[in-house]
Design a protein around this nucleic acid. Structure first.
Length: 433
DNA sequence: TCTGGGGTCCTAGGACCC
DNA sequence: TCTGGGGTCCTAGGACCC
């Protein structure tokens, strides 16, 4: 008996849907430029946490040939020779710039989805607009004028085609605006490699090429049923989307089901005491995020690992999941659980590279069944006060002693720019000539 | 010396149930 | 000899995204 497939991709019965994808150009590099105009037309790269890898580049840096994702030490010579400006990532700044942009975008349509730190989908079909590209141009100018960040806009009848349009807007147009419609869709897809479609990575791309599907147009013409059998419902949906059949709607912002905080250390860590500080610190970060979305965790996952690249010692990684007796959102209680857990997986005489926690199985506070072990009202007030104080002053104004005072293991960010928009002491300074 | 962090969704397969 | 069919729940792992 062959396997039966019960469900096919459910498509949204939407006639004439119009999606616009607004994507900031080289977002991190652009943020740095806003506060340092001398960087205009200069090559810029931004490094990952701990100044590890290149994670963002300006167009000039791309042109020089500095690759994405490469460890910094491997391209340091090229970066120095080409006088490329280097920044550590400054998520406080990028996050704040992002929320300003998203807030501006929300004025252009009631139906939108914040997809990532630098992208948003806007649904335009319910608006009385004559020309989508004219509207997109207004959006573009407004964002640039209000924040200094350049954006590109791609428009299409599905989210996947809007993504394609945005790709074309960035690569092949001068203004950074492009619309895909029935008359030009095949021509555009013919010139696009299958891996460049949203949702098709290197792995699926390789397998598709083995099936003689090389371009996005080949993929559009593939049988959805076959794609589902060979791959999954996700891949089937992409085929439908390329055929202008909308399968992906706007996602509402839903509370996270799990929240992770983890970092590799700025220095090698061998002592249990230091690891405990880091675990307490990550517990605090994750708990703060969790309370912000009004959730409780039913458990926590605690992990530590050594570096894969260190040949002087065996690669060790271990993790432990603790299930709470009743759901928790109290930083103090969660730190206690996490610290007990790490003692069980700590292995002495190793130099650790990374540690972190994941709060699991989150539920909304309103769904909580009160029981004997529910948090006492005093603890609830304490957590509220803690969050308010840290929000008002700055992250870490109040912290648990378990996190340690010096936190020497914290990541390196030797080339970070100032927190221009969120810290009174670091405001940008204008000089008169 | 130095190799990121934080998510989501889907599938397969095992355990278990009637 | 011959060991169904249909379902749920859970977990691990793969693949993808930015």
């Amino acid at each position: 008996m062959g396997r039966r497939y019960y469900c096919t991709a459910r498509c949204l019965a939407m006639e004439n849907a119009i999606y616009a994808l607004v994507d900031c150009n080289n977002f991190y590099a652009s943020c740095e430029r806003v506060f340092n105009p001398a960087l205009k037309h200069k090559p810029i790269v931004i490094l990952s946490n701990n100044d590890g890898c290149v994670i963002a580049r300006s167009n000039e840096a791309k042109a020089i040939g500095i690759p994405m994702g490469l460890p910094y030490f491997q391209c340091k010579t090229l970066i120095e020779q080409s006088h490329t400006h280097v920044f550590s990532s400054n998520y406080t700044l990028y996050g704040d710039m992002s929320s300003r942009i998203m807030s501006l975008l929300s004025a252009f349509t009631p139906e939108y989805e914040i997809y990532s730190i630098d992208e948003a989908f806007l649904k335009l079909d319910s608006l009385a607009i004559q020309d989508h590209l004219v509207y997109a141009s207004k959006i573009q100018q407004h964002i640039l004028k209000s924040t200094g960040i350049p954006v590109s806009v791609g428009i299409g009848p599905t989210k996947t085609l809007a993504k394609v349009a945005n790709y074309i807007a960035k690569k092949k147009t001068l203004l950074g605006l492009f619309e895909i419609h029935a008359a030009n869709v095949e021509e555009m897809l013919a010139s696009l490699a299958v891996e460049d479609i949203w949702g098709i990575g290197n792995n699926l791309g390789k397998r598709l090429r083995q099936m003689h599907i090389h371009s996005a147009l080949d993929f559009k013409q593939a049988s959805p049923v076959k794609m589902r059998k060979q791959f999954s419902v996700v891949v089937e949906k992409i085929v439908h989307e390329l055929n202008s059949l909308s399968c992906l709607g706007l996602n509402e912002i839903e509370p996270k089901q799990s929240i992770t905080s983890s970092r590799s250390f700025g220095i090698k860590v061998t002592e249990l005491a230091r690891l405990k500080e880091a675990i307490a610190y990550h517990s605090t970060i994750a708990c703060t995020k969790m309370r912000k979305q009004h959730s409780f965790a039913r458990g926590i996952y605690v992990f530590i690992k050594t570096s894969k690249h260190n040949e002087k010692q065996p690669y060790y990684r271990n993790a432990i999941t603790v299930t709470f007796e009743s759901p928790l959102n109290d930083t103090g209680l969660i730190i206690q659980q996490a610290l007990q857990a790490i003692e069980k997986i700590f292995c002495p005489h190793l130099s650790y590279h990374k540690a972190g926690v994941m709060l699991l199985d989150l539920i909304d506070a309103s769904l909580l069944q009160p029981d004997l072990f529910s948090p006492s009202p005093n603890r609830v007030i304490l957590m509220e006060a803690l969050d308010k104080i840290n929000a008002k002053f700055q992250k870490g104004a109040l912290f648990y002693a378990a996190e340690g005072i010096q936190k020497k293991w914290q990541m390196k960010r030797g080339k970070k720019s100032s927190d221009f928009t969120t810290n009174w002491k670091e405001l940008a300074i204008a000089y008169a000539k």
